[in-house]
């Protein structure tokens, strides 16, 4: 099968790979580049576990062809902590018990990050809307919603 080159930045680092044409970004990240933080829960765009951020926008990596990401800046949950210090969202997910099995967590954090990047002080309804594409089967959504609201409050206190 013909290989195609792809080149993008992942969490600030340059990545270049030859992939089979038609490879999803999810599979390219996990199998070729070795970033397994995006998860494959359905491979059909319904569970949100594979969510990543591409050029500032929330995307489902299982429905995104890797070859369409040339030149893009991609962020995943594995790249959020800086110098060993957790991102406020990661801290909040820890503190509010917003994880149980952990499989949906990276996708949830991606969705929440895009929300807070655009809307630093979201209402509860806005948090619910932002997480509506991500399925959790363990905790229920309430601790996750609280985590995002907690992170938003922490951000605004730091900014003040």
């Amino acid at each position: 099968m013909a290989k195609v080159p792809v080149q993008f930045t992942l969490n600030g680092s340059e990545k270049a790979e030859f992939i089979d044409s038609g490879t999803t970004l999810l599979n390219a990240l996990r199998d070729k580049i070795g970033d397994t933080s995006p998860k494959g829960g359905c491979h059909q765009g319904t569970c949100g576990a594979c969510s990543v951020i591409i050029d500032g926008e929330l995307r489902l990596s299982c429905l995104t062809l890797a070859e369409t990401c040339n030149g893009a800046a991609i962020t995943t949950t594995s790249g959020l902590a800086e110098g060993g210090v957790l991102h406020p969202l990661q801290r909040a997910f820890l503190d509010t018990f917003a994880t149980q099995c952990g499989f949906c967590t990276p996708g949830m954090i991606m969705a929440a990050k895009v929300l807070l990047d655009h809307t630093p002080n979201p209402s509860r309804d806005e948090v619910v809307e932002a997480l509506s594409g991500n399925i959790c089967r363990c905790t229920g959504y309430e601790p996750i919603i609280q985590a995002v609201l907690t992170a938003a409050r922490a951000n605004s206190q730091n900014a003040a």
Binding site: D35, T36, S37, P38, K39, G40, T76, T77, S78, L80, A81, L86, L89, Q90, F93, L94, F97, T99, G102, F103, T105, P106, I109
Partner: peptide
């Protein structure tokens, strides 16, 4: 939880 929120938890896949 620290593994979950950083994406470091190793699931079988």
């Amino acid at each position: 939880s620290p593994g979950h929120v950083t994406g470091k938890t190793a699931f079988f896949a």
